[in-house]
């Protein structure tokens, strides 16, 4: 089976500071994956390179065996990679339904089709369609981010700290949403997370980043026992 996403030796520096160096990994179709690491480890940089916010200085990215490095964010999205933002960016002047419809128009020609798709997703995420986005609570804003990304019908969904700031029960609800999505639609997921509770519950495969390098990978159970990981990640910062 060929990988859905192949990351081959990508590096990125900002003003001489190496954020990511020679990062490589593969995501298989239909899996749930997590990228963890302490603050400043390069998680968000890798995420942004996959999402097309900026191109890697060197290395290559392949999605369904097609090179995608250097494409713009909208081209990445059209190719089938959806993303959420860590700092939520709702279209505040629009309703929840309208927000999600913007995403749905990528694959739907008509307003009616886009509306139908959006309503299904909104129901799944337990949002209220007619609520103005500006009045949503933080957990609902995070859900809206996910709903909008889902509306573009991604094959790979990139989640940038969607659990941060949620209460444990809300986290569990969100975990259930992604499990269900992965089960029913086969959507491949890559999450960047600080919240270990969510990573342990959700991810089948975990990669650990430290100082811009992938230092370990494996199942969550293997990762938490890996002495390298304990030393440089769990040793400094434990969030459960």
């Amino acid at each position: 089976m060929t990988a859905l996403l192949r990351v081959e030796g990508i590096s990125k520096s900002f003003r001489g500071l190496k954020a990511v160096s020679n990062g490589s990994f593969e995501l298989s179709r239909g899996t749930i994956n997590a990228l963890i690491g302490p603050n400043g480890a390069g998680k968000t940089t890798i995420f942004n390179m996959i999402a097309g916010v900026f191109a890697p200085d060197s290395g290559a990215l392949f999605f369904k065996d097609r090179p995608i490095h250097g494409l713009r964010p909208d081209e990445i999205c059209s190719a089938g990679i959806g993303r959420t933002f860590q700092i939520v960016k709702p279209f505040a002047g629009l309703t929840v339904l309208e927000n999600v419809m913007v995403g749905a128009f990528l694959r739907e020609k008509t307003a009616a089709g886009s509306r139908a798709t959006s309503l299904r997703i909104i129901e799944k995420l337990r949002l209220k369609a007619e609520q103005p986005a500006s009045t949503l609570t933080l957990p609902d804003r995070k859900r809206l981010e996910v709903a909008r990304a889902l509306a573009t019908r991604p094959e790979l969904l990139l989640l940038d700290e969607v659990m941060a700031g949620l209460r444990p029960t809300e986290t569990d609800e969100m975990v259930e949403v992604f499990r269900e999505l992965n089960r029913s639609e086969g959507t491949t997921i890559l999450l960047i997370e600080h919240v270990m509770r969510a990573v342990m519950a959700l991810a089948g495969h975990v990669g650990v980043l430290h100082h811009g390098e992938v230092i370990a990978r494996g199942t969550p159970q293997e990762i938490v026992r890996d002495p390298k990981v304990l030393e440089c990640y769990l040793g400094e910062e434990t969030e459960v």
Binding site: A51, R72, P73, D74, C77, S78, G82, R83, F85, K89, P90, F91, A92, G93, L94, E98, M101, V102, G103, F105, L106, K109, A111, S114, R148, A149, A151, T152
Partner: peptide, 26 residues
């Protein structure tokens, strides 16, 4: 306003980055 163009324009008005992430060629 009720067509794809209207939705895309309003998305760009509200937040360009989010619009681009949803596949809109801003």
């Amino acid at each position: 306003l009720r067509s794809k163009a209207g939705f895309y324009w309003q998305a760009i008005r509200e937040n360009e980055d989010a619009a681009q992430a949803l596949g809109i060629n801003v």
